[in-house]
């Protein structure tokens, strides 16, 4: 059946392309839930992509590459954390600085690595049995890479932590009202550092995915604006990890369809489609009353916290 084939092809590609976006979005959700707006996602992703690639290239082990990429993303996020939590710099500025820093540094360091194919990518695998389920089998369980499952698994895990554990409440309360949280004896700075670090780890992992799995090679500027999509999708997902799954894969589907539909629809219109979606979707969600109540950004998002006695 023709339409079934279309659904399968589109969703397969959506999973592959949407995974780094999902990883980045999950991380940014944590950072923002704790009140830290990190516009440095693009920078952390490209750092993760570069370090992940070089590590996998040298050690011939993609998993070390993922680890190194995530770690570098995390380290870079601590820079933003130090500036915005400790020094209370305007978060927009320090995040933008991180993006520019990441793009610039990897551009200089990456010269010699350009165009070298990575032999040590991870294998695609099929799940026996499950791959024979109609429609769902070919999408999810045939020749998919492990990171796709890790991404979805992480989304569920992070949702559970954020909404079902006491540490999740701590994170959310720090993001909503750090003063009250502080009065309750919560170490606001520590929670924010942790969440920013999680954000960096996941952005770095997403970047490493790009250079190790998605396109196993290094190219300057290869994130090509994905970090900004992540920031838009964080808002679209209402800062909710499970909604982020839908958002990321919807964006991935539209991205693929913008090429698949070209023989019938003008390419200019199609190329803006995924981006239009990230703008329009929050607006549409906003129209729903029930969602609007839940939707508001974390109360203290982007605001540095300062104790009164200081």
């Amino acid at each position: 059946m023709e339409w079934q084939l279309w659904v399968i092809e589109t969703l397969r590609r959506a999973l592959v392309y949407g995974t780094p976006i999902l990883l980045g979005t999950l991380g940014e959700i944590y950072a923002e839930r704790s009140g830290i707006l990190n516009l440095g996602v693009e920078g952390m992703m490209i750092l993760g992509a570069f370090v992940g690639f070089t590590t996998a290239f040298v050690t011939k082990n993609p998993w070390l590459g993922f680890l190194a990429g995530a770690f570098v993303g995390g380290a870079a996020s601590l820079l933003h954390g130090f500036l915005s939590i400790h020094l209370r710099v305007i978060q927009v500025v320090s995040g933008l600085a991180l993006t520019l820093f990441g793009l610039g540094l990897t551009g200089v360091l990456g010269r010699g690595w350009e165009g070298q194919p990575l032999k040590a990518s991870i294998a695609e695998l099929s799940v026996p049995g499950l791959s024979r389920i109609p429609v769902l089998g070919p999408i999810l369980f045939t020749d998919q890479n492990l990171l796709v499952y890790i991404g979805i698994g992480l989304a569920v895990l992070l949702w559970w932590v954020l909404f079902k554990t006491s540490w999740g409440i701590t994170v959310r309360s720090v993001g909503e009202d750090p003063r009250t949280a502080d009065a309750l004896g919560i170490n606001v700075a520590l929670v924010r550092y942790c969440c920013t670090f999680i954000g960096g780890l996941l952005a770095g992992l997403g970047g490493a995915y790009l250079s190790i799995v998605y396109r196993p090679s290094w190219t300057q500027g290869m994130t090509a604006g994905m970090g900004w999509i992540v920031i838009a999708l964080t808002i679209f997902s209402l800062w909710h990890p499970l909604v982020a799954i839908g958002g990321s894969y919807a964006f991935g589907s539209l991205f693929y369809l913008s090429f698949r539909l070209q023989p019938w629809v003008a390419p200019e219109l199609l190329t803006i489609m995924p981006y239009l979606f990230t703008i329009l979707a929050p607006l549409l969600l906003h129209a729903s009353r029930r969602l609007r109540r839940r939707m508001g950004a974390p109360g203290a998002l982007g605001l540095p916290y300062r104790r009164e006695e200081e």
Partner: peptide
């Protein structure tokens, strides 16, 4: 033919 509306964009070229 597929247009990607960019001189350089690996992700678009891939999809």
């Amino acid at each position: 033919v597929r247009w990607i509306e960019a001189w350089f964009d690996p992700a678009k070229a891939k999809e």
